[in-house]
Design a protein around this nucleic acid. Structure first.
Lengths: 202, 202, 202, 202
DNA sequence: AATGAATGAGGATTCATTCAT
DNA sequence: CATGAATGAATCCTCATTCAT
């Protein structure tokens, strides 16, 4: 009589999450959320102070899931390239489902949400950290040659954003894995130790 | 009697463009456009059928400017790296001003605008074309070694998106130019002919 | 087991009273009362049928306290002026705390509460009665000369309202006691027997 | 075709004024104003920024009328008593119609409106000024004897508030004029020069 | 005796759009 | 060309009240 039911708050959160990612936060009305969760508008307000609070809860929930999945996927790989690739792919697949965070991290006009600013900062720090680690391990192993680790990590992180972006916009969906492979090849070549001497601006 | 005045329609378009990029299409009201262009709301409706029509006009106008600037900037460069770098920088600088399109091309929830879909297609095709040209020239000159030109071009275009993205979100603003340099270095190394043999998955 | 605790009903009443006087009946929500009495909203409804009932109870409770205090304060004085002054001061001080009633008796738009109408009648009757008594005693003692006792009592009661009013609005707070003194001087002079002949409309 | 119509803004103001005085500002909804002025809710918002703005406009309009009428009525009287009485009566009659201001000047919870605070200050200053003038003229003519003019003026102004109050609450309506007469008698006696010596606290 | 959950009815405000002039 | 006036439809949010437990 009670265990088969999903908590009302969670139900609302799930519905909201789904609608947010379909239409964006601004274009989603509380009415819509109420309708699709089969609650009254005021019920929504019973559980959440206001729209922002709903959005906040949705994002917080998703960010946890994301970090979990990424952590796992990296640990499951041994080679450098494997780790990096796994990282990129997992991140993308997760983001495909957690489009809310993606929006939160992407859409400029969400900047005024303070908690979004906060999440962004942590999120980027995490990403940089992960890439830095991979780079450092590569250097130690004598595979990579990198002068400015921080800037290089940054460059890679930024470039990877482009892939997420394409993913969420669902362009090029078919070839995306191939494209990632090619990108990683270029990247690894570019970092490879046995080169790095006879290159000049051509 | 008429040449000293800016066409009313253009005035509105300019104002709208500016506001759209500050607040996003959705959060911009006709009222706001009317107020800031010193016209009455009904005046706006005299010139444009509705809000969508304004947005459409704004985007069309800006996309032309963007392509113009990019074309010029590439032609002004001789070296491969110069062309690529010039392309990236110009594109970014233009996008900073033309954040409208950027938003339009990015914000997923605008997908239902048919003309946005249309513009996206053309826009990506253009980008791919530009990168392809650069790659092909590099190959012909014996500088680059590339197996699958299309996929490589795609990988690069996508990675570049990450940079635009960072730009618009105004993260990492200080180091961005350095970061681009480093990225281009990796890229050129990665494509360089004199390597491309002794790399395996490490 | 029960004597150390304040009755829940009374607790609610006290809290409600305090909030009502801070914000007025209309602007006070049941939620607010619930929150500040550390009860659930439904708990409030367990004890009281509805908001009106709460208000009613609050006012009834306070009106009793008020009358009590006034009765005592008058009995503690011997002279006419002493009684009158004591009456005014006590009434004011009490009203400051029982601003609820004051609001109830003042706010015109509460007129539709039948019980407020009822209380008003009684309340004014009481006041008139008190002033009448003072006047009659004064006349008997040969101090006052009054033609129409009822109308005079009424005039005084009404004038005193002005003082309450100022008190509640917290204007002139500093000089108020002095002002009351002066008013009483004028009043006593005006009623004094040894005059009352050579005044004409000047 | 156009001169027979009342300005829409004024129409709304009139209707609002009337409803405000019947139900108070808080209990009046924009919907109600819209309905009774036969406009759409949004029409109301076309003419006024928000509810507060309507209230503000209503009060400002009425305060002007009030001051006008009072000025005139005083000038039409020669004797002291005549002036005072005329002042009181006019003020009351006007307030009966301009119940909005009355509410605004009376209801404590309106204090947060800055413009109300402002009006209140000016309004009280005006009243004090008028009474002071009357007192000073009386003193100069050798009719009154007053030690502390300011405090006396204040005492009278405050006492008069009681009458307004009774008026607006529509208590004692029948006898009110008589009551005012009696009050003025007491007042004039109390201030009369030929007394003021042999009074002690009785 | 108490309360968590839910809700209908309202209420303020915004906004794209229409229309007569 | 231009605009003042008007409005329907949405939208966020509040609140008194009910009910099952």
């Amino acid at each position: 009589m009670k265990n088969s039911k999903i908590n009302a708050k969670d139900l609302i959160l799930n519905v909201a999450s789904e609608i947010f990612s379909r239409f964006g936060v601004f274009k989603t009305s509380i009415d819509q959320i109420a309708r699709e969760s089969h609650k009254s508008k005021s019920s929504i307000y019973y559980h959440f102070k206001n729209k922002d609070e709903i959005f906040k809860s949705v994002v917080e929930k998703e960010i946890e899931q994301l970090e979990d999945e990424i952590r796992k996927s990296i640990n499951n790989q041994d080679t450098m390239k494997g780790k990096l690739k796994s990282y990129i792919i997992t991140r993308m697949k997760s983001l495909r489902e957690l489009e809310n965070i993606y929006a939160a991290l992407t859409e400029d006009y969400l900047t005024h949400y303070d908690f979004i600013k906060h999440i962004r900062k942590i999120y980027y720090k995490n990403e940089l950290e992960i890439i830095r680690n991979i780079l450092e391990t590569g250097i130690k192993k004598g595979i990579f040659i990198v002068t400015d680790i921080d800037s290089t990590a940054l460059a890679i992180v930024i470039a990877l954003k482009g892939f997420e972006h394409s993913l969420v916009l669902r362009n090029y969906t078919t070839k995306l894995e191939t494209t990632i492979d090619i990108f990683l090849d270029i990247l690894f070549n570019g970092l490879n130790k046995k080169l790095k001497e006879n290159i000049s601006s051509q």
